[in-house]
Every structure is written in C-alpha cells, then in structure tokens.
C-alpha cells in the first residue's frame, strides 16, 4: 500500500507513521495509539482498529488471535458534556459515571 495512505481518519495517521512505530517495537493497538495518536479522535478507533490489526499482523507476523483489542472507554460514543452533566433529578450523572474511572496499581478502567 502507498505509505501516505491515511489509516486513522480522525487523527490522520498514515500507514508510514504506524509502520515506523511497529518497526520500533510496538506490538498492540494501544502501543500504536500512545505513540502516534492513532485511534484517539472522535470515533475512538471504531473505524481504524481493523486496519491497524491487519498492519500489526503483516508487519510483525503476529497471528490475529494474539493481537489484543484496543481499549474501549466510556462514554462509548460522543456525548455533549451538557447531556452528561444533565438535569437529572436523582443524582449527578457526571459524578456517577465519571467516578467509575479509578486508578489502582496501574489498573485502569
């Protein structure tokens, strides 16, 4: 494939940029994401993850069943902060949803 081909439409990360980090030792989608911003745009890797998996497979000879899924975070699709902050009467939704995010011993949810 032409090296200038865009793989991640949102952050506009090219084949070449992903190839480079794979050459430098990246092995998973999340490695590539941290190094290039691939998959960090509004679609949150919904479109590029399968293309990236093929690249990992081709460049590193890793079988597909050893290429883990990208981490999928809340909110699962784009939502207005105004909606997340909400007019809910029962509780503050921002607090309840966002409080689920916690850090302990490197374990990230």
């Amino acid at each position: 494939m032409d090296k200038s081909t865009i793989i991640c439409r949102c952050e506009e990360i090219s084949y070449e940029e992903i190839e480079e980090v794979l050459t430098n030792g990246a092995t998973t989608f999340d490695d590539i994401k941290r190094l290039t911003r691939c998959g960090m745009g509004p679609c949150q890797s919904k479109i590029c993850h399968s293309l990236v998996a093929s690249m990992i497979h081709e460049k590193t000879n890793t079988p597909y069943f050893q290429i883990p899924l990208p981490r999928m975070r809340m909110p699962l699709s784009p939502i207005k902060l105004e909606t997340l902050a909400t007019n809910s009467t029962s509780f503050s939704s921002v607090k309840s949803v966002m409080d689920e995010v916690e850090l302990e011993d490197g374990k990230v949810r």
């Binding site: 439409r9 949102c10 952050e11 506009e12 745009g41 509004p42 679609c43 919904k46 479109i47 699709s77 784009p78 207005k80």
Partner: peptide
C-alpha cells in the same frame, strides 16, 4: 474538513460511528 491536513470529509458509515459527517446544526457543533 479534517483538522490536521485540511482535507475534505463526508458521509462514510451512516451508523453514527465514524464521525466523518460532523457538521454544525442549529448552532450546535460536531
């Protein structure tokens, strides 16, 4: 237009997943 390379974007998935069809509608962005 895309944010980095300023290239045209349009409808792609029609399922609300790809976000390529973001526009400003009735004053609301994205």
């Amino acid at each position: 237009l895309s944010r980095n390379l300023v290239q045209p974007r349009g409808l792609f998935c029609t399922r609300g997943r790809c976000c390529s069809c973001y526009m400003t509608v009735n004053g609301e962005d994205h």
